[in-house]
Structure formats: structure tokens, C-alpha cells
Write a protein that binds this DNA or RNA. Structure first.
Lengths: 120, 120
DNA sequence: CTGCATCTTCGAGTGCACTTGAAGTCAAGC
DNA sequence: GCTTGACTTCAAGTGCACTCGAAGATGCAG
């Protein structure tokens, strides 16, 4: 019934090694085991992995993700703190987007310049 | 008249060490020297550094930057290739921005969810 | 029965972009 | 004359996030 590490790897895009690593450092909490002791991922596990991946690709350090995961484990009492973490992270991502957009306009300028050069 | 490495460091935001490193790997070509053999940066040097920094912060690998710098050194004949490099890089940056924007909306969703939780 | 995937723990290796430190020389400013 | 900042070369270290490999055990599928 559960999802094997192999499948979870394929779905999440993370290697089996990395999945074990994430579990070891506490990013994923207590993945269930089947009768043979093998990891058995659930749908919520995969959703959580998906969210973790979004945090990572948006540049949240592993240490912060661990902190967030730990708060989540502590239950609803930590909801406000988790929200604040996400809000702070959101701000950083927006800044990053703004910076990248600015830099793209410099690229555009340069590219236009090259085009002008080639057509002269 | 020239700009010392100290000033160039302050203006560019790169350490003196990094400036020497960039020169060593060919990112900056032949920075001028004063009578005492000390580096003397020019305004164009600083502008180039500024552009290099934009390439870096937008995620271009050092190796690609070196390639671009080399083409630039080869003169106008390589303009089209440089333009193509910038265009390809521009595409990658736009994709990155799109990805980040998507991820921000997931953050927004989660944050809203926390707000709803807190107000219930 | 065989073979493969999985499990555990552990330490070491990788890639990138610096960053630091050592060791010794040199020249200008105070 | 001494300090300060710069120069050179070179090797080693750092931080992050994996990534890999070894070693030995186990259990399910064909």
C-alpha cells in the first residue's frame, strides 16, 4: 500500500540516498516501515517532500528547514512561529525576484546593444 | 589617478583577494599597474566588474563567465557568440524568476492558511 | 535458491566559489 | 627606519548540500 523509496525518489526527484539523509537530519519525521522494515511513504509524506523541495529551490538553508520541520512536529502551538518563518522567507524570495528582474533588464540592454552592433 | 585594489574592493563589493583571484582565472584582463607595480583599476574595469557581478548573482557559473570574458578579449568578431550566450542566460534567468514566482504563490497560500488557523 | 532492493551505520568524497594563510619581497608615507 | 599596504606563488581550508561507497544483514519476487 505504501510507496517504496524507489517510487518516492522518482516522484519527488530526490535520490533514495537523499531521502534517507533528509530523514536522518529530521526533515522528514519517522517515515513508516513495512513488515520487512522498509520505508513506506504515504501521500502526506510526498506532499511534505514537495513543499520541502519548494523551500530548498527558493533558497532556504537546510538548517532553517530543519527548524521549520521541528516546529511542525511540535503541533499547532507553533503555528504563529512557522507563519513568521514563511513570511520572512517570502520577503527574501520577493527580493531575489526583484534583483533578478533588475539584472534581466541589464541583460536585455546588452543584448540589444549586440543586435545594434550586428546591424550596423 | 587609478583606483587602488582597496577602493575597487569597496566599490565592487568583492574582496581584494577575490579581485586577484578573478584576475588570475582570466575574468579581468590585465589590470594596469602603477609605478610600484600595484594594481590600478580604471572606470571601465569597475563597470566590467559590475557586469560580472550581475552574471554571478544571476547564477552564471564562473566557467561560463571566463568563456564570455575570453570572447570579449578576442574583439568584435565574437559579438554574435557573446550575444547568444547572454540570450541563453537570459532565458535561464527568466525561467528561474517564473519558478520563484510560482513558489511564492505556494508560500502565500500556506501563510494565508496559518492566518486562517490563528483567527479561528 | 538466487538475486536484487532494501536496510543500518559510518566516514569520506564532490563541486562550486571562494577564502584563508604562509612566506617572502618591495615601495611609499609618516 | 618602520609601519602599512601591496605584491607574488602556492597550498590548504571553508561551507553548503548533497553524494557515494563500504560492509554486512535481511527479506521478498521469480
Amino acid at each position: 500500500m505504501g510507496i517504496t523509496i524507489q517510487e518516492a525518489s522518482r516522484i519527488s526527484g530526490l535520490s533514495a540516498h537523499t531521502l534517507r539523509y533528509y530523514e536522518q537530519i529530521g526533515l522528514i519525521h519517522q517515515v513508516g516501515r513495512d513488515t520487512g522494515g522498509r520505508r513506506s511513504y504515504t501521500q502526506p509524506d510526498l506532499e511534505w517532500l514537495d513543499f520541502l523541495t519548494k523551500l530548498r529551490t527558493t533558497g532556504m538553508p537546510i538548517a532553517d528547514m530543519c527548524r521549520y520541520a521541528e516546529l511542525r512536529r511540535q503541533g499547532p502551538a507553533t503555528a504563529a512561529e512557522r507563519r513568521r518563518m514563511l513570511e520572512a522567507h517570502r520577503e527574501r524570495v520577493l527580493e531575489r525576484i526583484a534583483q533578478l528582474s533588475e539584472d534581466v533588464s541589464v541583460l536585455d540592454y546588452k543584448i540589444d546593444f549586440y543586435h545594434a552592433m550586428e546591424n550596423s
